[in-house]
């Protein structure tokens, strides 16, 4: 929560309200390094990952969200939303990069490295 204040290298950009993301769903954003997926779980937690499955680059934002993970729509790989790591039988086979995300009073902020 305090990373927003601390790190001067990161620019925090307000991209919307957490309630703009459907529960057990995701929305997409076009980022400077590619598409970003922002997920909201059934319990209301939000996570951001680069929107590309480590397996074959499938758009994770289009998968089914269950618990704190998402199942890729292309070949069913299960990804941990918090770490981007592959889970289950695919554990250790690559991860989707985590994008810095902060929630402040219901607003979502994406962290972009300045440069």
């Amino acid at each position: 929560m305090n990373a927003m204040v601390k790190d001067p290298q990161i620019a925090w950009i307000d991209v919307g309200a957490d309630t703009d993301i459907p529960r057990r769903g995701a929305r997409r954003l076009k980022g400077p390094q590619g598409e970003i997926a922002i997920f909201r779980t059934g319990d209301g937690q939000v996570f951001a990952l680069m929107d590309a499955c480590p397996h074959k680059g499938g758009p994770l934002s289009q998968g089914i969200v269950h618990g704190a993970s998402v199942t890729c729509p292309l070949h069913g790989r299960v990804i941990d939303l918090a770490t981007g790591e592959s889970l289950g039988a695919d554990a250790g086979k690559g991860c989707a990069p985590v994008v810095p995300l902060e929630v402040r009073e219901g607003r979502l902020f994406i962290g972009l490295v300045r440069g």
Partner: peptide, 15 residues
């Protein structure tokens, strides 16, 4: 409609 629109276009503008 949310399903088909990106959440925000701000990141594109920022860069």
């Amino acid at each position: 409609a949310d399903e088909f629109n990106p959440l925000s276009r701000r990141l594109e503008f920022e860069r």
